[in-house]
Nucleic acid binder design. Structure first.
Lengths: 219, 219
DNA sequence: CACCCGCGTAAAAATGTCGTAAAGTTCATT
DNA sequence: AATGAACTTTACGACATTTTTACGCGGGTG
């Protein structure tokens, strides 16, 4: 949820329209008093400095005290001193009116990306852990060395845990579009993976075959 | 150290003056080729998009690939589409010329503040300590002398401890984009590092090779 | 029942990558 | 001009990986 703090209704409407076009949920506040209760739940704040009940700078440092969410100041004041003050008080960006909607969204995305930045997650299948961020695979805690093709295959399967990945998908991505038909490659690589990861390679539990379609990693 | 990338000498001088007034160390580069080797050591980058040898956007994404340091784009182009593109490629801010020195400094401070004041001073791997702040490397307490390329390689690996750094990343940053294919350089430098840092250079523990991909520093 | 298909398995052949040494080159310093 | 350090370039053997080929099994089909 993105919080808009501005006293002019038409600016709020404009900002709200831009944000919802960008796919965000929006909350609005017209002054400092009504804004503070919403700050805690906001993923980011768009803040106008010219508020009726309170100086915007004070509100900014109050927000910073409560929340680490990005704050983008949206203001009509262009003076560099204003910008410097706001930025040093903890604002993440300072946009002057009139502003471009797409630019505002891009600046918001940039601010959120910096805060968030946690896309990497490890996939677990049985006692096997696949960490695509570090490109490491462990079985029962012990690191397992995989070749490029082996890892490529496992990573593709881990990208869609529990779902079938077709022969064609695997081959085009790992071996390139020219080898869509070389299913033999796939079988050799799958075998190598099973030997390294399965307790009983002859009776695979993790890397299952779906006859005529592809493979799947069970989780 | 803050890196300035701009082809116009007078702009570089201006930026350098502003930065040193703000108390920062400065390094300058006039094109993409000379910039890449400096990126690894930069705490932040001021980047002009209009470079002679390469599209600024490309350089931006290359920088993002090897470094998490803040990038502030400083450009004469005011089009919103430019800003959106740069911000979505990983730029932290976009400042249009002509710019105000104090505002630029404030934006730089904001960007550096967000990056979490201090990003890992010294990296330890076994009995080897890499202090990128002082550019010093010690093994079992004793200082080890490294050449520029050796240190560059080690610093790149230490910037992402435990993770694989690809051949291409290492080569573009240390030797420049023109040598992405000269993997032989890499092997020679890796060998030299191993001789100086590993207990048994023939059986490396610290500087591991990931066949066909790159190298990694184990911690 | 004999056949075919897709699969797993094995192993040989081809290719690619790495480590290593050493010779040649550049460059700053003296 | 001589020196030495750092860097570039080349060559080759050892080893790892990938590709290619061959064969046996088992389940469904005619």
């Amino acid at each position: 949820m993105i919080l808009i703090v501005d006293d002019e209704p038409h600016v709020r409407r404009l900002l709200a329209a831009i944000l919802s076009r960008g796919g965000y949920d929006v909350a609005e506040a017209c002054d400092a008093r009504s804004a503070m209760p919403l700050v805690a739940r906001a993923e980011a704040v768009l803040l106008d400095l010219g508020l009726p009940d309170r100086d915007g700078m004070e509100l900014l440092s109050d927000i910073r005290r409560v929340s680490a969410a990005p704050v983008l100041v949206v203001s009509a004041r262009e003076a560099a001193a204003e910008k410097v003050a706001a930025l040093d008080l903890g604002a993440d960006d300072y946009v002057t009116k009139p502003f471009d909607g797409d630019e505002l969204l891009a600046r918001l995305r940039a601010a959120l990306r910096r805060r968030g930045a946690e896309p990497a997650r490890a996939v677990t299948a049985g006692d096997v852990v696949i960490d695509t961020e570090r490109r490491s695979v462990t079985k029962a805690g012990a690191e397992v060395h995989l070749t490029r093709k082996e890892y490529g295959l496992l990573a593709m399967l881990a990208a869609h845990p529990g779902r079938i990945v077709t022969h064609a998908q695997l081959l085009t991505v790992i071996w390139g579009p020219a080898h869509v038909a070389d299913i033999a490659y796939l079988r050799v690589a799958a075998r190598a993976l099973r030997v390294k990861l399965e307790d009983d390679p002859a009776r695979p539990v993790l890397i299952r075959n779906e006859p005529g379609i592809g493979y799947r990693l069970v989780v």
